[in-house]
Design a protein around this nucleic acid. Sequence first.
DNA 1: ATGACGCATCGAATGCGA
Length: 260
Amino acid sequence: MKLATWNVNSLTVRLAHVLDWLAANPVDVLALQEIKLTGDKFPCDALRAAGYQAQVFGQKTYNGVALLTRAPLAMTEVARGIPGYPDEAARVIAGTVQGAGGPVRVVNGYFVNGQAPGSEKFEYKLTWLRALRDALREELAAHPRLALLGDFNIVPEDRDSFDPVGLAGTILHTDEEREHFRQLLRLGLMDAFRLFEQPEKSFSWWDYRVLGFQRNRGLRIDHILVSQPLAARVSACAIDRAPRKWPKSSDHAPVVVTLE
DNA sequence: ATGACGCATCGAATGCGA
């Protein structure tokens, strides 16, 4: 079974890319972030024609997340938002899918960006991360086979940044954000990407400006964390840079994990 | 150094992303 995550930066603009990518990479589950549209505008028909069902937590202009499943797979127990944490932004959608070794709980998140350390948005980010962790603790107790994937907006370690020295302490690179990432791991989750040897300077996002992709000035901020029972079954995890090369691409590339 | 780009919003200039 393959799960993937992709921040598409507007599904309206990127629908053709998503369909093209799914045709070449028929993953079982695709978690989308920044769809930037409401549920009534979600392209259900086009995706259904491509063989995918969708569960959507939409929002106008900003944010918005969705979970796609390749038919006949379907999500059950779908939950929107972080339980017990009221949030105006549509950032989290979770669901359960049947895998080979049992059910898999999939939690898809578009984490808060935070803009700049010290800002109100940064405080929101830290509060949001705390709420997510508290909710995940419960979620893991109920669903031991769990994957948390999405756009984390956190660079976990120096090797995940094109300029760890110059960007030290700036947004996505702060100690507070990294500590939150480690706290997620302490819940019993593992960074699937780091279960395998990976090329140096592996990134999942590149700035549209300054020819970021061409110069590989990127960050690894899109992640797939898996609980221990799933980690034992992960056979591969990779970033697919191909769609980042396509004209008018999202600034993010998909990340794919394979479970036996 | 700030802005570079791209996307969204009812119509242009601005907020926002990372």
